[in-house]
Amino acid sequence: SGTSEVYTPAKQAWLPASKGKGLEIMGTFNRKQGKPQMSMTFHNKAMQPMTGFAVQFNKNSFGLQPLTALTIPTPLSANQSIDTCLALNTRGAIQRMDPLMNIQVAVKNCIDVFYFSATIPINVLFVEDGQMDRKVFLATWKDIPPSNEVQAQITNCSMSSDQATNRLQQNNIFTVAKRTVDGQDMLYQSLKLTNGIWVLAELKVVPGNPTIQLSLKTRAMDVVQDIQKAYTEIMQN
């Protein structure tokens, strides 16, 4: 899409009707008004109305938990579907998951309790105050050893460095400085996760070249792979 906005993955089938005794849940994660949230569609494919919906999360890597109760107008009639958003916070119990961004969810209704796993896109945990002070950025960049730097290429990205800056900023990845060296734009960026982990990045953008070089530096190497994935998805979508 040509329009730049907050990146939200398409809804996925988290609970197929065949495993939910007729309840199908399609869902995705996004971030709205400074909070992560789950956006879901509940579809009753059973032949009886459904009532008594509730949701609970297992412990997870970032302590995500529902901020409010699930709001589903009941009864959910046979063949009816309803869209719902569940605001989340990160003050829940923490347990490192493998994969890191996996979350186990239980949904209850009048028929049974159902369990499914979902993958949280890490960018919904990028906070709004993730712009690192420039002086702190330089010191941190030098302080993190080269062994903690991971490079990757983002392909098929026909974006100028200014477009990249804007798109990333809408997703709470902030450009701290920009320099142009030999026609190559170098962007120095920062982001902060809800648990206080900082990630520093350098983007090398050559005008007209659809491949962008991404270098990440962080002390928390566990998150690097997911951050790379987030950059790729934000910049390709």
């Binding site: 400085a177 030999d182 190559q184």
Partner: peptide, 20 residues
């Protein structure tokens, strides 16, 4: 935003990491 020392540090960082 207008600290010339910091501006210079970023320029040096970018130059040191540029792939011509």
């Amino acid at each position: 935003e207008d600290d010339p020392d910091l501006d210079d540090c970023f320029s040096k960082l970018a130059e040191s990491r540029s792939n011509p």
